[in-house]
């Protein structure tokens, strides 16, 4: 039988202009919420009572070795990210280029560095001295590779060049998202390709690619921990240095976890503000605020 049979109301019954409304109650939601909350409480309680010496965690949270590790982690991540972005912009433009050589080189770069594990790339850069014992300009300058490509440098090169392969695709997608009419309008004003790119296309590209770049930066911060394998003195390596000596393995891994979480949280906040900056002209609310200086400018 159709439910409509029961829902029938004669028009004559609609006497009021307003009615009291009774919403459905959702007992299922309540039950699910309570069960999940209990499970979380049990989990937290288990860790609180587990064999983790929390005072030790607190003690090592801010020791000099750990702090130095954090600085290096931040440096490696930031430098790798910058290298990745620069490579991404360069190779994205090469991939868009009408020049078939540029295009092929960009595609080859992506193919190699996106197609091999980043851990493998780290190990290769670390051992690059086996391939080129010395580097420099032949006959003019020469250094021993082992002195130049320190674990820190190897980490930045490996992570940055790997990131660049992904960034190329991110930047290219951003460039494609800007309407061709934008460059044409700039051309009719007589702007050069460089001016058009920097002032018109790039700002609009950034708006689109900042969210994926933010994700990558957060990913990079965590991936930089792989550099412990080539004994770069970053955060995870610092915690290992300590627990190899004192045996407080879990406590020190907790220390690392807390710092990684803190750093990624800060990055998320920074990302929010950068996104807001490049959203101008697109985000109605922010633009409306910018209208105010009109009166102030009457000078």
């Amino acid at each position: 039988m159709s439910p409509h049979a029961d829902l029938r109301v004669e028009l004559a019954q609609l006497t009021n202009r307003t009615y009291q409304v009774r919403k459905l109650s959702h007992p299922g939601r309540w039950a699910a919420g309570i069960i999940v909350a209990i499970l979380v409480i049990l989990l937290v309680a288990a860790f609180a009572q587990g064999q983790i010496d929390w005072p030790v965690v607190a003690e090592f949270l801010t020791t000099a070795t750990i702090m130095k590790g954090i600085v290096n982690t931040l440096l490696i991540s930031a430098l790798s990210m910058i290298l990745g972005l620069v490579l991404g912009v360069v190779f994205a433009m090469m991939k868009q280029s009408p020049n078939p050589v540029n295009k092929a080189v960009a595609e080859g770069y992506i193919w190699v560095f996106r197609g091999t594990p980043v851990m493998l790339q780290l190990l290769i850069w670390f051992n690059i001295a086996l391939v080129f014992p010395t580097i420099g300009i032949p006959g003019v300058l020469s250094w021993r590779t082992i002195d130049v490509v320190t674990p820190f440098v190897a980490a930045v090169l490996a992570l940055g060049i790997n990131e660049g392969a992904y960034m190329t695709e991110v930047v290219r997608a951003g460039l494609l998202s800007v309407d061709k009419g934008q460059s044409e309008a700039a051309a009719t004003l007589g702007m050069s390709p460089a001016q058009t790119f920097r002032r018109i296309v790039l700002p609009q590209t950034l708006r689109v690619i900042i969210p994926p770049i933010g994700n990558s930066a957060i990913g990079m911060l965590k991936t930089s921990s792989l550099a412990t394998a080539i004994s770069a003195r970053e955060l995870l390596n610092a915690t290992q240095q300590i627990y190899f000596v004192n045996g407080q393995v879990i406590e020190l891994l907790m220390v690392a976890g807390i710092w990684y979480l803190a750093a990624t949280t800060v990055l998320s906040v920074i990302q929010y503000f950068i996104e807001r900056h490049f959203g101008r002209g697109f985000d109605g609310q922010q633009a409306a605020r910018k209208v105010e200086p009109l009166e102030a400018e009457g000078k």
Binding site: D179, G181, Q182, E184, A185, A187, T188, L189, G190, I200, P203, Q204, R207, F278, R280, G281, F282, K290
Partner: peptide, 18 residues
């Protein structure tokens, strides 16, 4: 080019600029 002004069907204003 800069001595020839052009107005487009779809305006092509720069959206990130006032």
């Amino acid at each position: 080019q800069r001595k020839i002004g052009m107005v487009f069907q779809h305006f092509n204003l720069f959206p990130h600029k006032t």
